[in-house]
């Protein structure tokens, strides 16, 4: 049964053009930030020491936003166009609906994140070669994996936000405001700043920070990579569960 429902989700996803435009945005953002990283670095030897940052271009910019939006849309489109009615008629259990959407969104996140990484490497590797920068890919697998995990998980976080908030404009705005501003403001408030590692940007930083760099920001120590991944997963799942249990169980009129 779950297989059938996943097939239905796949058809919802591919039967409008949103998937294509979001993919285009992902590719454009990744390309722009990769090009910016390489083009914006003047000296080749400086670039050599920044290889890690170049390979994190896919997450360094705002590519997490389209991934987040895809997750949000998975739920909110259903409310916006009232397709939630046929969806619930086919699958009366809101838990099953959210469970299937979680898996579907995770799969979408994985595919899009992989595409972003391929685009990044397709731009970075030849370009770096012309700049005489040597990239030892095997030693950068961890870096690439970090970028991949962050992108894929933001789709899941988006799903949670969508399930909880249901209104797509509000869900996207709230999500972006938190990740881009509020999380960072927390970092400068003395007593409150210690929750930073458990917020979305704190967790993202924990995943992408170089193992050789300082893991302390403004006196706050980041979590381990595994801890950061766990925090993003928990944010996504907790919001999705709350959404299924509270918001989505409301009357559909």
């Amino acid at each position: 049964m779950i297989g059938n429902l996943l097939r239905a989700e796949y058809r919802k996803f591919t039967s409008t053009q949103v998937w294509f435009w979001m993919l285009l945005v992902c590719v454009a953002l990744t390309s722009a930030f990769t090009a910016g990283q390489i083009g914006g670095t003047k000296y080749d030897d400086e670039l050599q020491s920044n290889v890690r940052d170049v390979l994190l271009s896919a997450t360094g910019g705002f590519t997490y936003i389209p991934l987040f939006v895809l997750g949000v849309l998975s739920v909110t489109t259903e409310y916006r166009y009232q397709t939630i009615t046929p969806t619930v008629l086919a699958t009366p259990s809101r838990w099953t609906i959210i469970f299937v959407k979680t898996i579907a969104t995770a799969l979408v996140g994985i595919v899009y994140a992989l595409i972003c990484l391929i685009v990044e490497l397709a731009i970075a590797l030849p370009w770096l070669a012309t700049r005489h920068v040597h990239v030892d890919l095997p030693s950068q697998v961890g870096t690439l994996a970090s970028a991949f995990v962050v992108l894929a998980l933001f789709a899941l976080v988006g799903l949670g936000a969508g399930a909880l908030i249901k209104n797509q404009i509000v869900a996207v705005t709230v999500g972006v405001i938190f990740v881009a501003f509020l999380d960072h403001i927390v970092l400068i408030i003395p007593g409150v700043k210690h929750i930073y590692p458990y917020l979305l940007s704190g967790a993202t930083n924990a995943i992408t920070v170089s193992p050789h760099d300082d893991h302390t920001i403004n006196g706050v120590t980041l979590l381990s990579v595994g801890g950061g991944i766990a925090v993003l997963v928990v944010w996504g799942l907790v919001m999705a569960v709350l959404g299924a249990g509270i918001t989505m169980n409301r009357d559909i009129t």
Binding site: N4, A8, R11, K12, S15, T16, Q82, T87, A90
Partner: peptide, 25 residues
């Protein structure tokens, strides 16, 4: 069949039905 507005406007009628086919196996 409830009110006639539960459709994604950018989806074709056939695809709307095919989604239901998939969901119901």
């Amino acid at each position: 069949s409830l009110e006639a507005s539960s459709y994604h406007p950018a989806r074709t009628g056939l695809n709307h039905l095919r989604i239901l086919c998939a969901a119901a196996g």
